[in-house]
Design a protein around this nucleic acid. Structure first.
Lengths: 237, 237
DNA sequence: CGAGTTGTTGAAATGACTCAATGTTAGTGG
DNA sequence: CCACTAACATTGAGTCATTTCAACAACTCG
């Protein structure tokens, strides 16, 4: 099947990603030449936790969940990624192992590189290595932030923060308020905020009664953004 | 004051650090030439959370705590570092901010680089950039691990894991057992395991009564290592 | 020896989880 | 188009691990 994207479109996508930010067009073309454009279907596993990390993935179309399963079977939903976002940077380092699973949510297309190819590109274009470093640093700061939240904030706060984070990456302005444009089950939210689906359900019900949000099956709309943001920051009431 | 270390000794220390692993002696000398060797006293702040990240630090002698204070004043003890260990890799990236404070525990010596100098070294020696990337990846995996533990393990398990981690980096074999050679208050342990000093105290008392450990003021000795390791892995009893 | 730090322990309070029952919605096939 | 099913969501009651507060004990240092 011939690729349904123009070279230009792919180059644009590449340039969107932190890893390839600020590179000349010629370099981007070189990077693109090293990649394969591959389709995926909904629920397909793009990267599997525990496998040797041999490939770097960037989504071109469609979305995916990044998750981690713990030894006792609990799932942690680390983040969602969409077009222009990547996963599997660890593959740039030899002999590493994927710590996360990437699972597609819808059908779509992704670019994938052998990690070694990316590593050798980074040798000739140090900017790529520095970009990768920046990326890991960002991830690290995010994670440290979440670690801290888990330690100091109560569940309600963490859930509020989680929702706001999702608004940031999939928020859509509606007449009544801001819709989070993702299929979010209570379970998904629980796995992100570090709690149980029961507590999520209770908390959302409470907020709904307070008129702050409107929520239903896989759907959350924030009605009063200001007040809601206050919740995320506030000391536990 | 003239430096109390030979060039060779410093080069050896450099080579110990992941950031400079596998570099030729000539490159190490170049790296060393860009650094300043500076003394510090006990409790001195080497890097301050919130400051612009302009310097990269590597300890030559002495130890330091890496900690994070949360908006509400809670302290999180992220890790201890000793000779040959670094902090402040973020300084390699322009316009970044220190997310952690590094505070000396004893008097000692450290090397410090302007982040920009290190970044330009990384330009000419891509291996440094790759090493930095590996370092950040390791930190990230550790953090992800701890995040997961916080979510799924009970306090006792987390405390056991914390102690074992400390054994790994400061364990000293004694006749009776393994001493953790650090001045560890209950508060310190609490800040590492993500709990309160009261719970730490209770848990240690319990283990002491069970004959697994021996503990006192700032002192923990693990008597029965095997059984103790089982604790860290076990499902909560 | 006294003062301050550090550690211990009890009792009470609490936030969140578990379990179980019930209600609701979307999608499927007759 | 309706009924059926499976997945998803809600809610109540009970339980539990952990925190909080408070009082006291032990150690260390000047």
């Amino acid at each position: 099947m011939s690729a349904p994207f123009s070279e230009q479109a792919l180059l644009d996508r590449l340039a969107e990603n932190i890893t390839f930010a600020g590179l000349d067009r010629a370099v981007l073309q070189e990077v693109l030449a090293a990649a394969s454009l591959i389709a995926f279907s909904a629920d397909e596993i793009l990267l599997r936790q525990g496998d040797e990390a041999t490939t770097f993935v960037m989504l071109v179309e469609g979305r995916a969940k990044l998750l981690q399963v713990t030894p006792d079977g609990t799932q942690i939903l680390v983040r969602y990624i969409g077009p222009g976002k990547e996963c599997g940077i660890v593959s740039m380092l030899p002999h590493s192992v994927n710590k996360l699973t990437a699972q597609a949510m819808d059908p779509g297309w992704h670019l994938r590189w052998p990690g070694a190819a990316l590593a050798s590109l980074a040798q000739t274009h140090p900017a790529i290595a520095m970009n990768a470093l920046r990326l890991m640093t960002l991830r690290n700061e995010e994670l440290q932030q979440r670690y801290q939240e888990l330690l100091t904030d109560c569940v309600a706060q963490r859930l509020a923060i989680t929702l706001l984070r999702l608004v940031g990456q999939a928020g859509r302005q509606l007449a009544q308020g801001t819709l989070i444009d993702l299929p979010l089950s209570r379970e998904d939210l629980a796995q992100m905020a570090g709690t149980t689906l029961y507590t999520v359900s209770r908390t959302l019900s409470f907020w709904e009664q307070a008129g702050l949000i409107e929520s239903g099956r896989g759907r959350v709309v924030i009605l009063k953004m200001e007040e809601f943001e206050a919740l995320a920051a506030a000391v536990p009431s």
